[in-house]
């Protein structure tokens, strides 16, 4: 009995490893997701849309295309974001934004809320994540609204 209990406890601790780095809010990865909001509150989808479309803030459209009829020149290095809110839970979207390397160590998608494993970061961007916790939540909230791979994708 005893050993099994201990092993069970260790497993559940591992599954929900709290990760925290310098100045960033701690979060728990459970399976392929970060179930809880980084700020403890839901984000704002309208602000999230603005961040995603902004090529100097979210940078998302450099690589992804998505349902943004007003945005010319969307990238094609990554899957289309149309319908992604139906494909993935909010927690799964959150983990992909925060640090997709947890799921795919070779991913080319930047880790938007991590300072780990970076080299030669430019002076202007040092010691802070690409997006802050509230911005991550805004983007998660917006991505959650992209429910339809068909009509979302139409320009």
């Amino acid at each position: 009995m005893r050993p099994r209990l201990a092993a069970g406890l260790a497993l559940s601790l591992m599954a929900a490893t709290a990760r925290a780095e310098g100045g960033l809010r701690p979060y728990a990865v459970v399976g392929d997701a970060i179930p809880a909001s980084l700020t403890g509150a839901p984000g704002d989808p309208a602000r999230g849309r603005a961040i995603v479309a902004d090529r100097t803030r979210g940078l998302c459209l450099l690589c992804h295309a998505g349902p943004f009829p007003e945005e010319r020149f969307q990238g094609d290095l990554a899957p289309n974001l149309a319908g992604v809110g139906a494909r993935r839970s909010p927690g799964a979207l959150r983990l992909r934004l925060v640090d997709g390397r947890v799921l795919n160590p070779d991913t080319i998608m930047p880790s938007y809320y991590s300072l780990e494993g970076l080299a030669r970061v430019g002076r202007a961007w040092r010691d802070r994540p690409i997006l802050d916790a509230a911005e991550i939540e805004d983007v998660v909230a917006f991505l959650g609204t992209l429910r339809d791979a068909g009509t979302d994708a139409k320009p």
């Binding site: 450099l62 690589c63 020149f73 969307q74 290095l77 970076l118 970061v121 430019g122 961007w125």
Partner: peptide, 20 residues
């Protein structure tokens, strides 16, 4: 860099694609 990219990611693996 902050984006954690490499020259090779763009120029070996993704040349011919569109970055924005």
């Amino acid at each position: 860099g902050q984006l954690g990219l490499s020259c090779a990611i763009c120029h070996d693996d993704n040349w011919g694609r569109r970055l924005g």
